[in-house]
Design a protein around this nucleic acid. Structure first.
Lengths: 188, 188
DNA sequence: CCAGTGATGACACAGTGTGTCGTGAGTACA
DNA sequence: TGTACTCACGACACACTGTGTCATCACTGG
């Protein structure tokens, strides 16, 4: 089953995080990453399509997971309630399987180019929630806005969870954020 | 005052839009754009920092304009009302000075890379509104969420205005969107 | 023992983005 | 009129990204 040194993709991910932290994204080349992982530059591009994606591997599973969760939420729930319930369930799973979240956060926060890519991933989440809400017969305009709101809540809750270094449950972080959200919208 | 052919930057912007529309973003090189504008590749990079920014020239004026408008809104208005009022005023100015908005929208909608850059510009708008709200003594969490909501409204209103090919006022487009927004949040 | 499979290396190439220097048209001043 | 200065632009070089193509080599199945 295993030929050559197995785990090449994992080694590339570790090497990239380390180098981005040590020297900063702009001062790291794909060749650096590949060499630290014991591979060539060409092999890096067989695992990741560009220099940024190495930090977002696996992120493509989040949108479908959220869509699924929105669809399985209580059929009687309001759109926003359904979305927030989906976030709580998927988020709880997410924080179990994620590691090195703080380092990853630090790397992204230090690089405009990586923040730009992260916004694309965030947009994919919003689209997945929006489309799932539409399948729940929510009208298009409402679905878009609720999906945006839910994504903001998700982002803030995840950042809050990282700041507690994982000592808090994701659910409690999300609850804190939704309380703020309710207060913000009270003045409408 | 004027040496060489004046208006080099304008020629580059026109050439870029034309070529992106004709061949698609991926099939256009910076050399193509520069040559159509009667310049060299090196000169292109003296006007724009990369291949994408040529489509977003002038966008750096929008965030400070919105921040200013938020600060000059009715001091007694709620955060969201202040933000929406700022959007209406700045948006009305914007649609007067913008041209080729439909072509520009078509180009961006056809390219993931350009959409990624557009999200960065959108993020700058959100940050400007958020910071202005903080200066109005709105607390941080509320400011973040209201700024996000306002940005969503702004985006949707501008897209709606383009779809009317400029026949509607920006204010009426924004009004339509905020009505949807209110309906969406009613279910909270 | 041999053919097949698949990950990897080697090499080439188009394109992006940047540093550096030269050039020549226009400007200021005597 | 002449001289020095300014500054947008061209020319050239270079590091790096991203991709196509072919060779290699370990392991697999017969």
């Amino acid at each position: 089953m295993a030929r050559w040194d197995p785990g090449a993709e994992e080694r590339l991910k570790r090497a990239a995080i380390e180098l981005y932290l040590e020297r900063g994204y702009d001062n790291v080349t794909v060749t650096h990453i590949a060499e630290r992982a014991g591979l060539t530059r060409r092999s890096y591009f067989r695992y990741f399509p560009d220099k940024r994606e190495v930090l977002f591997a696996g992120s493509e599973r989040l949108p479908p997971a959220l869509a699924e969760a929105v669809l399985t939420a209580d059929p009687n729930a309001t759109p926003l309630a359904a979305a927030l319930d989906a976030l709580a369930r998927v988020g709880a799973q997410l924080v179990e399987h994620v590691d090195g979240a703080a380092e990853r956060r630090a790397v992204i926060d230090a690089s405009p180019e990586l923040q730009e890519r992260e916004r694309t991933k965030t947009a994919a989440i919003t689209e997945a929630i929006r489309d799932a809400l539409k399948q729940r017969q929510v009208n298009a305009g409402t679905a878009e806005l609720v999906a945006q709101l839910a994504t903001v809540a998700f982002q803030n809750a995840f950042r809050l969870w990282i700041e507690t270094t994982g000592h808090a449950s994701f659910g409690s972080c999300l609850h804190t954020v939704t309380d703020e959200l309710r207060a913000a919208l009270a003045g409408m």
